[in-house]
């Protein structure tokens, strides 16, 4: 069954949150949804770019009180 995981990348800077996401993606199952929390504006733009490039599913980005929530689904 697909899981939802939160990756708390707050306080880190590019490419820290991306690398944390990739580390968790490697250990996840296809269909799992991963939500990265980041207060780094660069990561909020760069993570969706990376997801599109490598072929996972980009779900959404929302921002709340200076924290971006970037959600990705593992597809392969």
């Amino acid at each position: 069954m697909a899981e939802k995981k939160i990756i708390d990348g707050r306080g880190s800077f590019c490419p820290g949150p991306l690398m944390e996401l990739i580390g968790v993606l490697k250990m996840s199952q296809i269909g799992d949804e991963l939500e990265v929390l980041s207060n780094d504006k660069g990561s909020a733009k760069d993570i969706p770019e990376w997801v599109r490039k490598v072929g996972h599913e980009y779900v959404s980005t929302t921002e709340e009180d200076g924290v971006w929530h970037i959600t990705v689904r593992k597809t392969k």
């Binding site: 490419p15 991306l18 690398m19 990739i22 990376w50 490039k53 490598v54």
Partner: peptide
């Protein structure tokens, strides 16, 4: 290096 490596 790191971002390139994880981007295929």
């Amino acid at each position: 290096a790191s971002v390139a490596a994880v981007s295929g």
